[in-house]
Nucleic acid binder design. Structure first.
Lengths: 216, 216
DNA sequence: TAGATTGTTAATCGATTAACAATC
DNA sequence: TAGATTGTTAATCGATTAACAATC
């Protein structure tokens, strides 16, 4: 499950912190400031100062300057570029059930550089319908259509027991990256990236916190 | 951001693997099998054998037996209990925008032990409306209503710059755990758990994979 | 008994943090 | 210059993996 813990030398951990840096720095920038120190960022986000410097060094194009700190504007731009927010990628979504529809309904992905262009589902009732402005196609059209649209990202929101099968179709259709919401380890060729989204883990964390007294 | 990396002695990493164990084991169980070895689980999920044993030792009530392996049924039950899927917690959601509505529309949370009972938003247009069967209340009713309902989980789906303010209200209303979708470090009293959901990081990962050639 | 499989103790690896030198 | 702040090298810490003893 951890075959690939880094991407161009950047660790998952660093990557997970970047959206927090970005949000905080955007706030400071719109507050009219122009520079910021690693110490200030660390304090605001509850991180270690050195960790902040190391993270920023990995992604920023211009170095910070002693005594002044980092240029806010450049930093914000660097993080946005790094996170891929500046280029839009197209995706198709497979599995127009509850979760799939929830994702289709969320317009906010464009901010993150993602645009879902179509949905697929094997329910004949859904065939041809529009959900949140996106057409639902039958599953047998998946490979052909995805190929023709040259879509590079596939989103899997089908039940766990169908996930691998859908994954195989996506691979055949030529996608290069898969965002997988099923709690299943997907087998893919090495060149294809699978990113698992694990809301179940977050919820488990909350639930355990509430029931802590039972667990000792 | 990492103040609390473990919960009753279990690491975040282990916790993130549990939903994958569960899904795989459920599949084997419904396939009619009764026992399973750590090696088989490790192979199926691409993990290290010892890691699997250590994870299972942390959460299971009965030990595995040499030569036989683990009892599937007991293991599934133990993981479900551990993840809190067996007891339903009630939650309120604040911020009925795109993301908030997407979450409201998702009925699948009940499987994970979560039941969203109401939504709050400061848009007067939404006041009193039903979204996916849940009533949207104005923000000024948040504290009183949450308290009276004795809701223990708050879900934050407002823009980043409002997140802390909503968080403070939730704390005042007596929630014990917060599921935060805004990329903001929330300041809370020590007894309250904040769980950040970071879809932006997943998307960044995918986006970077697609654009890898640009990054060297 | 022999061998498969578990659980544990020790070694390794990577990420975080501390110490410190460089520099504006 | 002095001091704030950066970037880097070394130490620490925790998670993963390897080696191995225990046991059904």
């Amino acid at each position: 499950m951890n075959e690939r813990n880094d991407l161009n030398g950047i660790s998952q951990q660093t990557l997970r912190r970047l959206p927090f840096y970005l949000s905080y720095l955007q706030g400071r920038l719109s507050g009219g400031e122009t520079t910021i120190s690693a110490a200030a960022i660390a304090r605001a986000l509850g991180l270690n100062e050195v960790q902040v410097r190391k993270d920023l060094a990995l992604i920023s194009t211009s170095a910070g300057r002693p005594k002044t700190g980092y240029q806010l504007e450049g930093l914000v731009s660097d993080i946005e570029s790094f996170l891929g927010y500046k280029n839009i990628d197209e995706a198709i979504l497979v599995g127009a059930g509850q979760l799939g529809r929830a994702l289709l309904s969320y317009q906010g992905f464009s901010k993150y550089g993602l645009n879902i262009v179509a949905a697929f589902d094997n329910d004949p009732q859904l065939e041809g319908r529009e959900l949140h402005g996106k057409t639902v196609f039958p599953l047998y059209k998946l490979i052909d259509l995805t190929r023709r649209l040259k879509v590079r990202i596939g989103i899997i929101t089908v039940p766990a027991d169908q996930a691998q099968q859908i994954c195989d179709m996506l691979v055949e259709a030529g996608v290069l990256a898969i965002w997988n919401f099923a709690p299943v380890k997907l087998i893919v060729p090495g060149s294809i990236m699978v990113q698992n989204e694990n809301m179940a883990a977050s919820l488990a964390m909350l639930s355990r916190h509430l029931n802590e007294r039972f667990t000792e």
